[in-house]
Write a protein that binds this DNA or RNA. Sequence first.
DNA 1: TTGAAAGCGGTACCAT
DNA 2: ATGGTACCGCTTTCAA
Lengths: 336, 336
Amino acid sequence: MAATIKDVARLAGVSQSSVSRTLAAPDQVRPETRERVERVVAQLGYHPNRIARGLSTGRTGTIGFVVPDIANPFFPGVVKAAQRRSRELGLSVLLADSDEDPATEIDLIRTLTKQVDGFVLCAPRASDDELRSVCDDVPVVLLNRRVGQLPSIIFDNADGIRQALAHLAALGHRRVAYVAGPRTSWVNRERLRAVRFVAASMGLEAVETGNVSPDFEGGVASADLVLAASVTSVIAYNDMIGLGLISRFAARGVKVPDDISIIGFDDIPASALVTPALTTVSQPKDQCGRVGIDLLVDRLNERERSGGSRTSLPTRLIVRATTGPARPEPPAGPGQ
Amino acid sequence: MAATIKDVARLAGVSQSSVSRTLAAPDQVRPETRERVERVVAQLGYHPNRIARGLSTGRTGTIGFVVPDIANPFFPGVVKAAQRRSRELGLSVLLADSDEDPATEIDLIRTLTKQVDGFVLCAPRASDDELRSVCDDVPVVLLNRRVGQLPSIIFDNADGIRQALAHLAALGHRRVAYVAGPRTSWVNRERLRAVRFVAASMGLEAVETGNVSPDFEGGVASADLVLAASVTSVIAYNDMIGLGLISRFAARGVKVPDDISIIGFDDIPASALVTPALTTVSQPKDQCGRVGIDLLVDRLNERERSGGSRTSLPTRLIVRATTGPARPEPPAGPGQ
DNA sequence: TTGAAAGCGGTACCAT
DNA sequence: ATGGTACCGCTTTCAA
């Protein structure tokens, strides 16, 4: 079996207390003693049992990280960054996948609550009220979701939309479609609002083609609607929809970007790999994951500051091959 | 604070032992007592502290899941399945990302060892010896890697290669290139060996274009080599390389699949999204993740069976748009 | 069937 | 500076 603090104490001829101190507060122990302990620690390859430590300190050294769907290409990047940052801080990450189900999400959190010091909730699907109630029991940081004053990190969606629309306007586009994601999505509402507001302020005409599922199929399904809308450009709720649009446009012989320009959101890995590569609004996933951990750790340490800090991360337009100058005339829709 | 077993015991007017029993072995307590306890449990929303339980039982209810790179599109699918299965079994998953670094990997495992009941090591990068030594301390299941008799789950790479080559042969191809992945990769060696063996047995001519990094850039870099090899078809070590090939071929005006057929490996999500969609050998990621957990749990329970069970999962060719009939003449390479 | 009590491996307070 | 010791929350003998 692995060595315990007792073994170390015995072999070093000191008390458990001294061993514990040597590890936690080396300067509180005489160099002589310290060295003796350290030698034994090294010799035995002793590593304190974090579980046991957790029991007495109340701190587990573990952070719960909840995502709706780890297979969704947006999340791995965030998880990776969070993971890396946690390691730097000597923390572990307990990952939980809620399968996009609000009930599972809450259930997961409740079950794990005592195993972790706090949670980073990535784009949580639960209701505001549920989220609030969870926060009463355990420190939480929200990613990509804002609920009251709870500490959260979001991306500057409005500015992303602004950059996208400015880009299109500069290319001479006047009519742009917005393919909306799930009606229930907080982020979708944010982007939709921004499209309306910014388009108006830029003198662009924004048309909405309705809500679709935020995946490839959703994009495929909305492609014909977009065409029928006689626009020269389209902004998709996310990249998966954008990819679906590209695919369906190709199948219908609509040239991208000659006939129509496409802009996605998220900059998922696949966007750079397709042909033509998708112009997209990138959200700094790594920064998001890192800051998420940092914010949570801050809260863990400074228990006094109960007022949540709300952070906004910049987005950045990445121009690739799906955007180009507007055609003089919009492409003919099927019914024209 | 959250309720403890003491609170429940006091309110129910019984001992801690009875509460513990009510939860662990309900049939060992008088129905009367049980009901009283259960009522209080419900009333207090009591959930046993898994950390504390872990201390006394030596079981944490947590499984360590180590991946080289969660951002590698192959892994999220596996993780998701493992996650789901763990949840079904009431287990939690501690995810660790080694950043493709063997040293980090081992370090991670050592640190986490006492926090978990066992590990599932996904395509571990460490050496055979290191892996063996780890296994002395904690139950481990290997995914996509075989080390001696250690319990492991691999895919039937050879059969995947066989299916791929048979498909190409049926399309009339006679010369096929294999774009190899990292020389150090266990899986690459497996596939390379199979290519040589199976091609020979089918009367196909296999040419090797050398090792490249297993990513998009690797594919791009090898595309011209493939062309110069005057083959009509190519099998890539993995899909990312395949995607790179598609991209570079498109840039060079080489038509896929008319001029050359491409087959990838892994069936990562992006493969289905690109145009033309990539024909690929699919490995059942979900099954892999699920079985990985099951196998580990088996070992956890039946401590006697120390002989490792070695499982092989079937692979399946998914024909999409990058494979077609062989051209009568191979495309002209640059130097011809 | 039930309760008392001894750990599990640490931490931290209190003396010394 | 060091050692003794009472917990942390739960499980698990061992008696009753």
